[in-house]
Design a protein around this nucleic acid. Structure first.
Length: 353
DNA sequence: AATGATACTCGGC
DNA sequence: TTACGGCCGAGTATCATT
């Protein structure tokens, strides 16, 4: 019998900041990504539960959050530090399972098919205690027959929750939920389903497979059909990274190639440093362009052979950016660079011979 | 017709 | 009334190759 655990650190960035500076404990905390354009320009990365009570949400403009939570502590995100804390916790968690999948900076799946529910519950309690004691972070855990339901379970009770959903309880657990509780169902899918008079998972389960495929295409149609029945066969497996990117905000909206490439070149330098550190070669170079209306666009080029040369990024980047500006008349707000089709060049030493 | 590569968009955190 | 980041992976359309 399959059994999967999903672990989700509670308002992770905010919790890390509370530990770094205990004086802010008990206060509403908002972690911000400042763009540097004007003093409050930027978006909210996350907020602790106290700040959320005022209506602050991730993705919201910082200036809006400031009108909602006037007494909150607003801190700039220190992503590098959060990453280092995350790495430590994830390494500790990895030791508990043969099959472990780190899904993001604050989420992971564990395959615990070798355990019955009673053992799984004990393990969850142990993991919670270890993370709390050693890192001062609470987490929410879901245990269920597959990744889809485990994820929905961990979200069911937050923060510091533990939810176990047994196979016979899956249907009752998901049926009354709104369709957007399914991981992968966002605004666009919700709008289409709403148009079909489908709001809950129970209603979704009454739609025929053929109908879903007609509306959403084969992959997404089959996914929705199975999800409505709590079915998910996807394995817990360590994912290989497929892309590296850097993105930034321009001082002001512009179409000036020099201003754009000045930022691009800084981003490329930072990206290249990371690639060298991780011994990553790439074959595809992309630019990311976010126009004044916040629409995201990309242009990319695949090279004839893989490389790790920074000049290959810079040369292709400027070409792609010029091409984009020729095709699109909008002002640019943000821009970025991405490499993909990766390969890792493992270093070997003479000792191996 | 099937498979793989490429370019681009969408959604989640 | 408005306000607006920096990443990541998956999905989809289209084209070339076999």
């Amino acid at each position: 019998m399959r059994n999967v655990m999903h672990i989700d650190f509670d308002s992770f960035y905010a919790s890390v900041e509370e530990n770094r500076n205990p004086q802010i404990k008990g206060k509403p905390i908002v972690i911000c990504m400042f763009s540097g354009r004007t003093h409050d320009s930027g978006a909210v990365a996350t907020a602790n539960y106290l700040a959320r009570e005022s209506g602050v949400k991730a993705g919201m403009p910082i200036s809006q959050a400031k009108t909602m939570a006037k007494d909150a502590v607003f801190l700039p995100a220190d992503l590098e530090y959060y990453r280092s804390v995350s790495d430590e916790i994830m390494d500790a968690l990895r030791a508990y399972a043969d099959k472990f999948e780190q899904r993001s900076i604050d989420e992971a799946y564990m395959d615990i098919s070798n355990k019955v529910y009673e053992e799984a519950e004990i393990l969850a309690a142990r993991i919670k205690k270890e993370i709390k004691d050693n890192f001062g972070i609470t987490c929410s855990i879901g245990i269920a027959p597959n990744k889809l339901i485990a994820k929905m379970s961990s979200r069911y009770k937050k923060p510091d929750g533990l939810t176990i959903v047994k196979p016979e309880d899956v249907k009752g657990f998901i049926s009354p939920m709104a369709v957007d509780k399914i991981h992968g169902v966002g605004n666009v899918t919700v709008a289409v389903l709403s148009d079909m008079d489908v709001e809950t998972i129970e209603e979704l389960s009454r739609i025929e497979l053929q109908t879903l495929i007609e509306r959403f295409g084969e992959t997404k149609g089959e996914f929705l059909y199975n999800a409505a029945r709590g079915i998910d066969e996807s394995p817990v497996e360590e994912l290989e990274r497929r892309q590296y990117s850097r993105i930034g905000t321009l001082k002001e909206n512009t179409r000036d190639t020099n201003a754009i490439m000045e930022l691009e070149n800084n981003l490329i330098d930072a990206l290249h440093e990371k690639l060298i550190k991780n011994k990553i070669w790439f074959k595809t170079v992309s630019i990311i362009a976010i126009t004044a209306d916040l629409q995201l666009h990309t242009r990319s080029k695949t090279l004839l052979a893989e490389t790790n040369r920074i000049d290959a990024i810079k040369e292709n980047c400027i070409e792609l950016m010029k091409e984009f500006l020729k095709e699109n008349s909008s002002m640019l707000r943000r821009c970025g660079v991405r490499v993909s089709s990766l390969s890792e060049k493992k270093q070997f030493s003479l000792k191996e011979f």
